[in-house]
């Protein structure tokens, strides 16, 4: 079992402290969800754990050993799906998938609509297709942990089920996931472990406590 963990994260933008005492523990073969209101620091915490966001203080460890470099630089450890399109304009769909060690056949097996689009430039796909492509490729890429920042946004409800099935399939192979999304019914449906972010602090909860905590979550599930 592999564990990627961050603790004591402190992050400020100017005078505003976004995260204070942030904590996150990812275990392989499990799906962790991180929920909270807009601006509560969910994406920032993900970026700190990934290593792309320098923080005033952060402590990231992998299997009990402190990482001396950003997590993204450790080969085969973690990948991060940001909430916006991030594929450089010159790339075509097939090259993008292969650059993350995902065969194009795997992409088309998950999502047959991409059949025949291997040579198509990513920028010529629609917004929803780009989101679907990037999400599928990152989920399938051969790493131990994947962090998905709002993976269900801009995606058709029918295709959300495809992504959820794919995540479950990869979890069964031992991959660990950290997911945040405002489409609570979908993320709660997937989760094994629950984190709630409020006032820059991460709180570990069980499902009942989480539903009790957040009015909007409760509305969805009552």
């Amino acid at each position: 079992m592999d564990i990627l963990e961050t603790d004591s994260v402190t992050l400020s933008y100017g005078t505003k402290t976004v995260i204070s005492g942030g904590y996150m523990k990812m275990i392989s073969g499990r799906i962790h969800i991180l929920v909270g209101r807009n601006g509560s620091g969910k994406s920032s915490l993900m970026r700190v754990l990934f290593g792309a966001q320098p923080a005033e203080f952060s402590f990231v460890q992998y299997n009990g050993k402190k990482l001396s470099r950003p997590a993204y630089k450790v080969r085969g450890l973690v990948r991060y799906l940001p909430q916006f399109p991030f594929v450089p304009a010159p790339l075509n769909a097939g090259t993008f998938a292969r650059s993350y060690d995902v065969a194009w056949e795997r992409v088309t097996a998950c999502f047959p609509e991409f059949e025949g689009k291997e040579k198509v430039a990513v920028k010529s796909l629609s917004g929803g297709q780009i989101r679907m492509l990037t999400t599928i490729v990152l989920i399938c890429s051969p790493v131990k942990f994947v962090m998905l920042d709002e993976p269900f946004t801009h995606i058709m409800p029918l295709h959300i089920d495809t992504i959820k099935d794919l995540i479950r399939e990869e979890v069964a192979k031992g991959k660990g996931f950290l997911i945040t999304d405002h489409m609570y019914d979908h993320v709660l449906d997937l989760a094994d472990a629950y984190y709630y972010m409020e006032w820059g602090v991460t709180i570990t909860m069980n499902r009942e406590e989480l539903l009790e905590k957040d009015y909007f979550l409760r509305m969805k599930w009552e």
């Binding site: 792309a52 950003p70 993204y72 630089k73 080969r75 991060y80 916006f84 399109p85 991030f86 650059s99």
Partner: peptide, 13 residues
């Protein structure tokens, strides 16, 4: 640019 995350995911700082 937002594209930097593509390169970070490749392990390039």
């Amino acid at each position: 640019r937002k594209e930097r995350y593509y390169f970070f995911n490749l392990g390039l700082g």
